[in-house]
Amino acid sequence: MKIDLTDTTASKINKALVQGRRAIGTPAVGMVLTMVIVTDEENAYDSIKAAEEASHEHPSRTLVVIKRHARTPRDRTKSHLDAEVRVGADAGTGETVILRMYGEVSDHAGSVVLPLLLPDAPVVVWWPVNAPDVPVKDPLGALAQRRITDMYAVESPLAALEQRVSSYAPGDTDLAWTRLTPWRSMLAAALDQARTEITSAAVESESENPSAELLARWLGARLGVPVERVVTAGPVVTGVRLGTEKGEIVIDRPEGPLATLTLPGQPARTLALKVRPTSELIAEELRRLDADEMYAVALRGEGAKEAHAHV
């Protein structure tokens, strides 16, 4: 069910949510969190779709904040808020409210969103594009327990990575880090099997890849060895090589969803290592609402001995 509201208020939106739930016969809400998506019109569809798919695992109220540029005389002269309320099958397993803000109201998005947050429930803010330099100091970011950015969405990912280093606060995370979970799990398992000292390391990827840089920093911090960055023609991270006295530990994924794991003295094995869709990345991030210590370690490339070495 969809309800369109023009020149509206947060109070009217809350009433529309109640009306919508009653109309479809589900007056009780069983959502576990509020997700706030801050995006533009161009990226709104894909972001909403990813959030709705993730809601099957984490039922949530999704608030989509779109700040509109003035296109008509009305936009330039009047500050107003339009909303589209979705409940039932049109909103995954939760509720979705698309908020289009015009004029001065777009400068006060936090005040608009605050009355729409689920009471006594965690808040997660996700910027698919155009993330603020310091997410925790953003008016919407300040409302959240977790703040999700994506360095793949910027023109200079490695410059954005350095910005994340300087602005990091507990609760920050980035999808460039989330994409590494299968790699980190596979590497941890390989190291447990090899049970030998690592003497060198190399991470292979396309140039300017933020995930590869984070992986290299994580390995350097955890293993205490310099990590070489090798540029390859393949997409995303294509390989990791760990040198030992017994030979190399190699995970190679030049393309496609399969990788080859080679351990010293053992035959090569083929393992699944696919590039996951955004909905799976968001669902993973919603499974934890505490600070991600290892993300902080990877950003800074140091401190692994003090942090818990979990993956």
Rank of each mutant, 00 (worst) to 15 (best):
T6E: 08
T6Y: 14
A10E: 04
I13M: 05
A16I: 04
V18K: 15
P27Q: 10
G30A: 07
M31H: 10
E42H: 09
N43D: 14
A44F: 05
E53A: 12
V65M: 07
H69K: 15
A70C: 08
R71G: 13
R74V: 13
K78F: 10
S79C: 05
V85Q: 05
A91R: 00
G92H: 03
E95L: 02
T96K: 00
T96E: 03
M101H: 03
S106Y: 05
H108S: 14
A109H: 00
V113P: 00
A121V: 04
V129E: 15
P132V: 07
D138H: 15
L143T: 00
Q145L: 07
Y152E: 12
E162N: 11
E162G: 06
V165G: 09
S166G: 06
Y168T: 08
A169R: 15
W183M: 04
R184T: 09
A189K: 15
A189Q: 15
T196M: 10
A202V: 07
E204A: 07
S205V: 06
E206R: 06
E208G: 03
N209M: 07
L214R: 00
L223E: 13
P226L: 07
T232V: 09
A233D: 15
T238E: 10
V240M: 03
G243I: 07
P254M: 02
P254K: 11
E255Q: 15
E255K: 13
E255D: 12
T260H: 04
L263D: 00
P264E: 12
A268T: 13
A268D: 11
R269I: 11
L273V: 03
K274L: 06
K274S: 09
R276H: 09
E284Y: 14
E285R: 15
R287H: 10
R288F: 01
L289H: 04
V297Y: 00
L299N: 09
G301E: 04
A309E: 12
